[in-house]
Amino acid sequence: MTTPLALVARGLSRDFRGFRAVDAVDLEVAAGTVHALVGPNGAGKTTLFNLLTGFLAPTSGRIELAGRDVTGLPPEAVARLGVARSFQITSLFGQLTSGEHVELALQAAQGGGWRFWRSDKLLHRHRPRARELLAMVGLGELEQSKADSLSYGRKRALELALALALDPQVLLLDEPTAGMGMEDVERTIELIGRVREGRTVVMVEHNMSVVGALADRVTVLQAGRVLAEGSYEQVRADEAVITAYLGSGSHAAH
């Protein structure tokens, strides 16, 4: 393999009171690719995300970011090393406007959050870039709207704008199209296709048309283990994957 690896997990496991949510997962994400994690509910996808971003500490195993060991680092440290994530359950700051959200994210990336002796107007220097990002995700008109007042699909879009504001090397998207209508899904596919340039994207996704359209590589998880890995076409034809998804009943149908 000559492609450098952006993100690597080796023998990654996580227990919750005796229940093994993630079980000895090995994952290699090549730099510049879109890598999808799929699997049924409870397969450990979100737990794996939380491990990769430092929100959970692994019970065992190791995580490398561009060759650097980041196992056990807190989430803010992982974020500052160039990993941005979105959350599956929309996770915003209710009382702040869309514009304030993105300004805050841009400040996080560029520093200055400690200045308690300065006016918060200082955040406005991020405004031009914030507007660009909001326009990019289709929220150009909604800069002044409080996050609580946005519709579900728009909250998802704001999630994405926040992650992009960090200009991350690695972008982790937890079900970016969950709960979206067809039109929004199309737009999100197009958007991810655009922002993946120069980045590595890892995404958890249930919608197979999204995976098919974007993913260079797919890892299928089941019960915390890697069931299969390969291109979308390979994985889709994989006997074990078909069984896992459709149940053993599918054999009877053959």
Partner: peptide
Amino acid sequence: RVLVAIRDNPSRARALGY
């Protein structure tokens, strides 16, 4: 501003790098 963000959603603030 960061404090309010932390109050409203500490996990999100951490994911941004705060």
